[in-house]
Design a protein around this nucleic acid. Structure first.
Length: 426
RNA sequence: GGGCAGGUGGCAGAGUGGUUGAAUGCGCUAGUCUCGAAAACUAGUAUGGGUGCAAGCCCAUCGGGGGUUCGAAUCCCCCUCUGCCCGCCA
């Protein structure tokens, strides 16, 4: 949710910021509703105040055996009026909330302006793309040739956009997850969390999946939602909390399946496991004080990059431009890994600083030592990494054209039980 | 799924229709005392919102929502969560 007081003080700044995302001016409608709402609230509260007062008087009069009929009549009138005001207040508040909850976060000042992904800015690269000119089969061809990926089986049991990994590839996938979790927990200071995969509507609202992105989500028949990312659960663990101090950021990581309808991406990435309804992802979430979130953002980005460095996979890091950013984000870095079969970099991680938009919705606050007032925390999330896409990158970058096998990256050897290369199933 | 018992401030725990936003204890903060500390004593110590330059005033909140009443933490209904018993089950 947005800071309505700040918006009141400086509506032009809000409109200018939303314009960077290509939105027309929003504040005139908001301010009009806000003014209407406060007027109603003031009138309602005046009536409530009088009712409370009169009720006390009634109690006093009655306890002395007097006649309170006149006062009771006054209260009856007030109640009629209050019922009307309450109804109006509810309607206006709902309307205002509807508008505000559908508006994206303010973009940070140092984010480059731009219309779409073509305007994103590369900030660094790592490694050199292998096989720059030779044709490498894609992960589907590699996996099927090895007999270790079964897309027909997946389609048979679940439909399109699902996959079945077998044997060495399934193990490789699991090893990747292990490496990521171990690195984040033992080297990067994150606490491992094993969370629910189904969450309530309030929780989905808290991290802004709802109300705007309902069509992307799987809803259960009992009113719960399958998480589209572990960000949703991890971040909401601090909802309704008033944290003490928060001098050190809270850092959580989890490996969970992520479920997405991919409603708007028909025809995109239909081959293979790049874009699926279900995929494993290791997620990092940090909760910080406002003044710490920028540094934490860079730290988190480094944690994600570190995984790719360990795997010795070429990648580049970009800053998303204003027009390509997600709804909740103030600033987003994407990491893109080299995919040989496509001869291009593809997104494998996205690290976002969400500022206080989620914490306002979740009522996640902290209190400084000795301070009287609470403040909203900042929330950050980043993939560290998308495990399925990392598997694709490993398969293609470690492909051995000599026999169609896949070398196991050094960093994964401890997790592979002595296997150094994935070869055709016996 | 069935039954029983509960959800009160940071914590523990009173309170069953009327100046109770809420006793008491603990914790926490400040002050007094002390060379300093402890102890003791004194004072303060919820969240959100409206209004105001401000001090302040006002409204709401005792798991959530609705109802009864002049008035609800207290009565009624629904939901939810926790504990225990039974059933079922990875």
């Amino acid at each position: 949710m947005h800071d309505i007081k700040a918006l009141r003080d400086n509506p032009a700044a809000f409109d200018a910021n939303w314009a960077r995302r290509g939105l027309p001016p929003q504040t005139p409608a908001i301010l009009e509703l806000d003014e209407k709402l406060r007027k109603l609230q003031t009138e309602l509260q005046t009536a409530q105040s009088r009712r409370n007062e009169a009720s006390k008087e009634i109690g006093a009069v009655k306890s002395k055996g007097g006649d309170a009929a006149e006062l009771m009549a006054e209260v009856a009138n007030l109640k009629d009026r209050m019922a009307i005001l309450e109804e109006q207040e509810r309607e206006v508040a709902e309307k205002l909330n509807e508008i505000l909850s559908a508006l994206p976060n303010m973009i940070a000042g140092d984010v480059p302006d731009g219309a779409d992904e073509n305007d994103n800015v590369e900030i660094r690269t790592f490694g050199t793309p292998k096989n720059p000119n030779t044709e490498v089969p894609d992960h589907v061809a590699i996996g099927e040739a090895l007999g270790l990926m079964d897309f027909e089986g997946a389609a048979k049991v679940a439909g399109a956009r699902f996959s079945v990994n077998k044997g060495g590839i399934a193990k490789l996938h699991r090893a990747l997850g292990q490496l990521m979790l171990d690195t984040h927990t033992m080297e990067h200071g994150y606490t491992e969390i094993d969370p629910p995969l189904l969450v309530s509507t309030d929780v989905m609202y808290g991290t802004t999946q709802l109300p705007k992105f309902r069509d992307d989500q799987f809803e259960t028949t009992d009113g719960r939602w399958l998480i589209p990312t572990a960000e949703v659960v991890l971040t909401n663990l601090v909802r309704d909390e008033i944290l003490e101090g928060l001098e050190t950021p809270i850092r959580m990581t989890a490996m969970t399946p992520s479920f997405r309808k991919e409603a708007g991406s028909a025809g995109k990435d239909t081959r293979g496991i790049i874009r699926q309804h279900q995929f494993y992802k290791v997620e990092m979430v940090s909760i910080t004080r406002p003044e710490d979130s920028e540094a934490e953002h860079l730290r988190m980005l480094n944690c994600a990059e570190n995984i790719l460095k360990k795997l010795e996979l070429p990648f580049r890091t970009i800053v998303l431009c204003s027009g390509d950013m997600g709804f909740a984000s103030r600033k987003t870095y994407d990491i893109e890994v080299w995919i040989p079969s496509q001869q291009k970099f593809r997104e494998i991680s996205s690290c976002s600083n969400c500022g206080d938009i989620q914490s306002r919705r979740m009522k996640a606050r902290f209190k400084r030592a000795g301070a009287k007032d609470t403040e909203f925390v900042h929330t950050l999330n980043g993939s560290g990494l998308a495990v399925g896409r990392t598997l694709v990158a490993v398969m293609e970058n470690y492909y051995d054209p000599a026999d169609g096998g896949i070398f196991v990256p050094k960093a994964l050897l401890p997790y592979m039980g002595g296997v150094t290369k994935i070869v055709k199933a016996a």
